[in-house]
């Protein structure tokens, strides 16, 4: 009975959304028909938000990055905090996990040796992705997640590698504090929190786009260490403390 009510409710909500969004007089345009002229994103694409600044405004070749880290950097700071809180939660609730996780199948020789080759490559590509976040697609979050995946591989391939890496705790806190400090330096030099106080440089160069690469490297390090910490908490729990 519960399931039938749930299905009916879902159908009702779906109908409600569909009829309202696609009724004749709806201002919600179908995909691809919305004109960019009256949206804020047009200015983001043209980089013409603030005519008083040195043009081009953000200096980052990647439009998404310029929006995510520069125009709406405050949101990114918030999202980093969301991940931070979630990692803390895993650490706090990790106590539920009373014994070490072991797998039914022992990792074999091939996985063990293959890991040593692959981990380095994954780590390097992860770092490459967040260092080049302002030039190419990617950035701090995907790069950090890749670093986390390298550590997942380490945990899976080696039974003896089950120590929590204490340095990650420090790195996580340090990267987070530095993000806030970069923001506060902007407040004291430019008068606005997260103000871009570094020169923009030439578009396409590695050292360009002001504080964007700085923030993205910090975000990448923070996300990477947080994901690795979460994995460590899941694999080890509270056993070793």
């Amino acid at each position: 009975m519960k399931k039938i009510i749930a299905i009916l409710l879902t159908v009702a909500v779906a109908l409600f959304v569909f009829t309202n969004l696609y009724s004749g007089d709806s201002d919600f345009k179908a995909f691809g028909e919305k004109s960019l002229e009256e949206t804020v994103s047009k200015e983001f694409v043209n980089k013409t938000v603030d005519p008083q600044r040195v043009q081009p405004e953000t200096g980052s070749a990647n439009i998404v990055t310029s929006i995510v880290v520069n125009y709406r950097g405050f949101d990114t700071m918030g999202e980093v905090t969301v991940l931070f809180v979630s990692a803390l939660g895993v650490a706090l609730l990790g106590g539920v996990l009373r014994k070490k996780v072991t797998f039914r199948y022992k990792p074999g020789f091939i996985i063990n040796q293959g890991m040593k080759i692959i981990v380095g490559i994954i780590l390097i590509s992860g770092i490459y992705i967040f260092v080049h976040g302002h030039l190419t697609p990617g950035g701090g979050f995907p790069g950090g997640a890749m670093i986390g995946s390298a550590f997942l591989l380490m945990y899976l391939s080696d039974d003896k590698f089950r120590t929590r890496i204490a340095a990650f705790k420090v790195l996580e806190g340090l990267a987070g504090s530095l993000i806030m400090i970069v923001g506060l330096v902007g407040l004291s030099t430019g008068g606005y929190f997260l103000y871009n106080f570094l020169p923009n440089g030439e578009i396409g160069q590695l050292l360009s786009a002001g504080i964007v690469p700085v923030l993205y490297v910090l975000v990448g390090l923070k996300v990477g260490s947080e994901v690795s910490n979460i994995l460590g908490d899941f694999f080890i729990g509270e056993v070793e403390e």
């Binding site: 996580e172 504090s177 929190f193």
Partner: peptide, 21 residues
């Protein structure tokens, strides 16, 4: 006091407290 400090200072303190418990 600039209101952004009411967000930035607690967050900064939270991040610092991770490694100086």
């Amino acid at each position: 006091i600039n209101p952004v400090l009411l967000i930035a200072i607690p967050l900064l303190a939270a991040f610092i407290s991770v490694f100086i418990q």
